[in-house]
Amino acid sequence: MDDIILRTISRLIIPFIEIYGVFIILHGHVSPGGGFSGGAILGTSLILYTLVFGVEKAQKKFSHKVSDIAESGGILWFILIGLVGIFVTGYFLTNINAGFPIGEPGLLLSAGMIPLLMIGIGIKVASTMITLFHTVIEEAHHGSA
């Protein structure tokens, strides 16, 4: 898909999509959205990149190795935060009682561990979407070759 309009427009638009994704991930606890929807938007930006510039270039931006780390890392981060609760209060995934700062309700820095969990979920969802898309494309390439 070698088209100058497509390439220029995508180059312009992808950073904004990514910022919007990060915004939704970080504001999961105060506004609609959260880790899953924000991660999906982040993933979509790289899918758009793959569509316009091809898999080879996209693989350089986001290789299988990175996706392995991101996918396992997202859940491991979640588990790690959950374990804090076990050590402090004796219950897995305890929020405020485990010492996470409650902040001022309604502001960005609030709700204790929820924003931290959302970051983990966002990373996991984004990398899963990209990996799924890349895997489907690679299988199609192998099939035709």
């Binding site: 609760g85 209060t89 004796g90 219950y91 897995f92 995934l93 305890t94 929020n95 009682n97």
Partner: peptide, 11 residues
Amino acid sequence: SEGAFYYHLGG
């Protein structure tokens, strides 16, 4: 020996 118990996630 002690009987069943409950566990609440997140307390």
